[in-house]
Design a protein around this nucleic acid. Structure first.
Lengths: 266, 266
DNA sequence: AGGTCTTGTCTCTTATAAGAGACGCATGTA
DNA sequence: TACATGCGTCTCTTATAAGAGACAAGACCT
């Protein structure tokens, strides 16, 4: 997210884009940042506030927002001085879904899986180096373990993350995972070597279960969806209470793997 | 779509953006055109082909597409040299839907309406001067009358069009409707005065029925959804065979109006 | 009624991105 | 084997868009 870029120095050894330090920013980049920012805030926001949040000059921001609103990618919210995503983005998004068998079928599988098991179920993909929930369907429990579509979290925090990276060389993985990604929300640190080993193991067993990583009370079961032999395109996963019995976990994993395999045929 | 802009002179009396004739085009505009173009073609397309379709220089197109792919707004399709919409657009689109009560509830209403009646049902909105199908749910008939989400057609061709423009002054309407919009697919021409009168009538009666406009065998029933008193934000509509009986049409209109009214409360 | 913010618009400068065009490498086809 | 056509990358120029900053108008405090 909008990680105060001007403030932090570059994480050691990451992208080597040379920064001319104080140069102008391309309009298109500003636009991309605007969209990311809105996605992070999840609600309409004033233009001034937006400019501030992006460290972007006000005049430029006004201009770009106007153009985007005219184009329909953004819309002015009810009160008239806040912006949020626009209808065009919705239409483009639906077009993406229509053109994407995996996503379309995956959504259905997830919905039925969560209906059948009563547990929260998700379809996840790798998106710009992070684990991304592409579709989720809440479970039936009184206290739901739910999470929103579009949420992005570090790969090492999740079972799916171990599957999504299966088959990549170590160097590729190192390029994707940052130091921060290896620190769990509760402060514990995952060793990169351990993580890479877990990836290898997940690749062999064909599924992955993690307990109490993102939080202390959930367990995460994931199975890979292949787009080609060996190429993991997505994962399906179930989020269940951490005290779920061994047997039930086993049953759920079996069901999950079956469904994921069915999706893979594509 | 992508109306060979370089070829045609401006429709008399429309937008007065001065064209410096042979100037450079802003990157952001190119991007907006790329998105529109992909939306129109509805499938992945080669970059060269894309550049040609947009009358854009090849080098620029390559640069922009690369940036958009890096950003996740576009994706390279399977074979590796075609582009189409990307996951980010899907995520933004879902975010739009989540933040938009009317759309979210409207989709549901449309789905149940089409299940209950067995007819094709749609939620429509005004989008950049055109009638846009925002969500549609196909009917149960052996030969389905269906249409895709995102389809845009001229306002005068539809029942919804007459409702979406209700309450606008004549000058606003004239600004939106072009000469071409008034010519039906079969060549017949609608008089602007007649059209404006029909809008006024639809506004009073609170619904609109049109027969055999876009094609010879369908009838279109539409009812307005209000976002504020007098402000038509969307329409719900049913597409039925043109020979549907008077009684059944009446029943359907009543049902439709009830549903649309329920949506309006928001 | 003065002081402090924010909002939206406008003007002007200059750093820079759009674009022309060349290049090398694949294909295909005569 | 030559010739054409499409793809992807690069270089260099100059038209232009990003941005600084000024301005008027409203909002909200004292």
């Amino acid at each position: 997210m909008q990680d105060g870029e001007a403030m932090t120095e570059w994480p050691t050894g990451s992208r080597d884009e040379e920064k001319p330090a104080n140069s102008r920013e391309k309009g298109l980049n500003r636009v991309l940042h605007i969209l990311e920012f809105l996605h992070a805030t999840q609600r309409a926001i004033g233009i001034g506030e937006l400019a501030k949040g992006l460290n972007a000059p006000r005049s430029t921001t006004y201009t770009l927002v106007r153009e985007l609103v005219d184009a329909g990618l953004l819309e002015m919210a009810g009160d008239g001085n806040r912006v949020y995503f626009g209808k065009k983005l919705y239409l483009y998004g639906m077009a993406y879904m229509r053109g994407n068998d995996l996503l379309r079928r995956g959504r259905q599988e997830v919905d039925t899986l969560s209906r059948e098991t009563g547990e929260t179920s998700e379809l996840c993909m790798l998106q710009s180096g992070r684990y991304t929930i592409v579709h989720s369907s809440p479970g039936m429990r009184p206290f739901r373990i739910s999470s929103a579509t579009g949420l992005q979290i570090p790969l090492p925090w999740t079972a799916s993350g171990r599957l999504l990276l299966a088959g990549l060389e170590r160097s590729r993985i190192e390029a994707i995972i940052t130091e921060d990604d290896l620190v769990l929300p509760d402060g514990r640190k995952i060793e990169l070597d351990d993580f890479i080993e877990e990836i290898a193991k997940a690749r062999v067993t064909g599924y992955c279960v993690t307990s109490g990583l993102v939080d202390a009370y959930t367990k995460c079961l994931a199975a890979p969806v292949f787009s080609a032999p060996g190429k993991v395109e997505a994962t399906m996963c179930l989020v269940v209470p951490i005290d779920t019995s061994q047997e039930r976990t086993g049953e759920l994993v079996a069901l999950l793997r079956e469904r994921a395999a069915r999706l893979s045929i594509s």
